[in-house]
Design a protein around this nucleic acid. Structure first.
Length: 237
DNA sequence: ACATTAAATTCGA
DNA sequence: TCGAATTTAATGT
């Protein structure tokens, strides 16, 4: 028993990073190890700011478990939600590549565990790993498409579509290759991500449920038809 | 904002 | 350690 502990422990350490970083699994062994050596874990409580706006935060951030929100505020104090980041998501490459202050604030919507990949390691991967660059390009390309779609539709989107879009983003396969169709977020959190009040989120969810797109569960949402959910955010209906 | 229901926690055996 | 009782959290209107 005693003799087994060392390897078992090493394997467990290996596991959390492998699980949390789908992108890293695409790297050759040496680069994977390099990535793993440059990453550390941190727990954040619900409501805590992970990274303040205008701060130079020297990490690429991954969500091991939990839910974060990227947001800023208008001069009048109205919140603008850029994105929710679900378990498995990684973000912040823009600020890291340019080494500039964050253009948004990052807060935890629920108790979360995050992974922090330091700037030096990020740059090393950027300069040495073809696979890492493929990952980055794919993700940035997806973000571009996402925000273009948003500019195009945000004004006319009704609340139902906004909720659908927020949920669909949490299931985007480019951001979350391992996404689970059972989303663990309550209706208040849906509201915070979609930019609607909790009761409005509730009504939208129940309408989507009527359409057979998802099922509302206690403290979560089971998505039944991802394609239709996605379609809802893309076009008005 | 309030009433209802589900889940988590506490407590006593 | 089990389950009833109480408290807290989430939902529905």
């Amino acid at each position: 028993m005693q003799l087994c502990e060392q390897p078992v422990h090493a394997k467990a350490e290996d596991d959390w990073f492998r699980r949390a970083a789908a992108w890293a699994r695409r790297l050759p062994e040496a680069e994977f190890e390099r990535a793993r050596a440059g990453v550390r874990r941190q727990s954040v409580r619900r409501g805590v700011t992970v990274c303040a706006q205008h701060e130079v935060f020297d990490y690429w951030i991954g969500v091991i478990d939990g839910l974060l929100k990227l947001r800023t505020f208008t001069p009048e104090g109205k919140e603008i939600c850029f994105a929710g980041v679900n378990t498995g998501g990684w973000f912040g490459e823009g600020s890291l590549l340019k080494r500039e202050p964050r253009k948004y604030e990052v807060i935890a919507l629920k108790d979360s565990k995050v992974a922090l990949l330091d700037h030096r390691t990020f740059i090393w991967l950027f300069e040495h790993s073809l696979e890492f660059n493929h990952v980055l390009i794919a993700q940035m390309n997806e973000r571009l498409a996402h925000f273009i779609g948003r500019v195009e539709h945000d004004r006319k989107l009704d609340t139902k579509a906004r909720v659908a879009r927020a949920l669909a983003t949490l299931l985007n396969p480019v951001y979350y290759p391992d996404a689970d169709l059972q989303l663990e977020l309550n209706q208040e959190e849906v509201g915070l991500l979609a930019g609607v009040s909790r009761p409005v989120a509730n009504q939208a969810l129940r309408e989507l449920e009527q359409g057979g797109i998802l099922r509302v569960t206690y403290g979560g949402i089971l998505v039944l038809d991802v394609a239709r959910l996605r379609a809802y955010g893309e076009w008005d209906t």
